[in-house]
Design a binder for these strands. Structure first.
Lengths: 257, 257
DNA sequence: AGAATTTGTCTATTTGTATAGATGAATTTG
DNA sequence: CAAATTCATCTATACAAATAGACAAATTCT
């Protein structure tokens, strides 16, 4: 569930169904379920101890080996630790840490379009497609600058971002960004002293291979996507930003939506 | 990508990597990728025609049969239609429909906690856990009322919602809700004439069996989750609502986050 | 200390996933 | 009309996923 009212409002089920032959392995479904329950604090048992493999197999209606494979996955991710003869436990680090670490990133998102945002991975120049041109208020074929960035906190990658700018607006953007590490400062050098978000769209998607590599998560894990068009005070578009956020590590907090 | 600046800012890749042995079948990964591209309008070819099976197989680096299985899945979902000898096409209905249908649901979310919200699936009474009690400002063990609702538009399910209320606040809630179909009216009958959201948390998760059944999507598909605590004018909690939203059909729009 | 519990390892079997190649059927192209 | 293209169907093979059962190793309970 990955709730941040963590553990609140989630009751454990006696039996949890899994679906066969849907292209998602049972062990993966079980690993995802356990991970959600662990991260949301709805563990069913006290003090970070999981039910026994036998009980979990019964709960999910699968063989014990299938549960073991799921546990192996979460152990590899550092979420669980199994002790022969004792039981399987949530990694100590997670019992206190993740809640706080997952709580306070609303500002990162709120500031996403305005402030320095992680390290520059790549940049390129591309002619605007019809749809891009329409959105940014330029002619189709107009050169655009695209930058790819990655935000990392405590060695843990959180957010991929891609932004597009009309090149005419800020021809030196890549060099400026490399120097300042800031969108705001780079745009200011180009004479754009202020801008704001028109609106933000929030969607969800699944991690693909590229997301998985950059964000260090498994493929098929959920991502939060934000998309925002930024405009200057006169309403003229300055740039468009799309983020792909590891949902297991970040949540968005909206005050009084 | 499921963008609603649809088709904007997405360029097709010549080759798309897929991951083996990760618990997600290749045909499922390919189906998800194609679905995202179709819904976001980034199809790579004109007029709703997909690349040939041979080309897709080359693009994803898999056997043609694997691509066919992915296409079979999307055909079953009504997204694609294959014509022998001609090619594979995006279902006509989708070429114009989905964008509009996916665009205008910001209000639904904004109004989610306030207005009638789909049909009542179930209700129950449960003693508050420690975490629930803390959040709702009652004693642990206090009876809570839980209601489960499902919102549907044009026969298509969009949002599952679960809400918890302190029973003492509104003892007749279930009957009132069944009669009025409205949280606001039901609470008004209990003397709670006004309330507001303190904040909304937005996360993402994967669809499980129960989500898949209720929302009519495949397991493992992305969900948007919103969680909100509602309080009366004095700041006292009235209820807590959690929604699970089919991300392939709904996106959230936040004005000036 | 002995019994019960729990995780770890091993072998064997069945089903699902993915590849490979060949051939047929419908459509489009020249 | 013939050739090329594209989706449909079939057989065969290899590997991953899931089940089944047995037994070992470490810990806890009595």
């Amino acid at each position: 569930m990955r709730s941040l009212y963590d553990g609140v409002m989630t009751q454990p089920f006696d039996t949890v169904p899994v679906a066969r032959g849907q292209g998602v392995a049972l062990w993966r479904q079980i690993a995802d379920e356990l991970k959600s329950d662990i991260l949301s604090g709805a563990l069913g048992t006290e003090e970070g101890r999981l039910p026994t493999e036998k009980d979990l197999a019964a709960r999910f209606g699968v063989n014990r080996h299938t549960v073991r494979r799921a546990i192996a996955e979460l152990t590899a991710e550092g979420i669980l630790r199994a002790d022969q003869g004792r039981g399987t436990f949530v990694s100590e680090r997670l019992i206190t840490y993740p809640i706080s670490s997952r709580t306070r990133f609303s500002e990162i998102i709120a500031a996403q379009a305005r402030e320095p945002f992680g390290k520059l991975l790549a940049s390129s120049e591309e002619p605007a497609t019809a749809a891009q041109a329409d959105l940014l208020g330029v002619e189709a074929g107009t050169p655009l600058i695209r930058i790819e960035t990655l935000s990392v906190a405590d060695e843990v990658p959180l957010i991929r971002a891609t932004s597009w700018f009309p090149k005419a607006l800020c021809p030196g953007l890549v060099a400026d960004y490399a120097q300042t590490g800031s969108t705001t400062k780079s745009l200011a050098r180009a004479g754009v002293t202020d801008y704001r978000r028109k609106e933000t769209r929030i969607l969800a998607d699944l991690a693909r291979v590229e997301d998985a590599q950059l964000l260090n998560i498994a493929i098929g894990q959920p991502l939060l996507i934000t998309e925002a068009l930024n405009v200057d005070p006169s309403g003229k578009p300055t740039h468009f930003t799309r983020t792909r956020i590891a949902a297991e590590r970040v949540q968005l907090i909206v005050e009084s939506l």
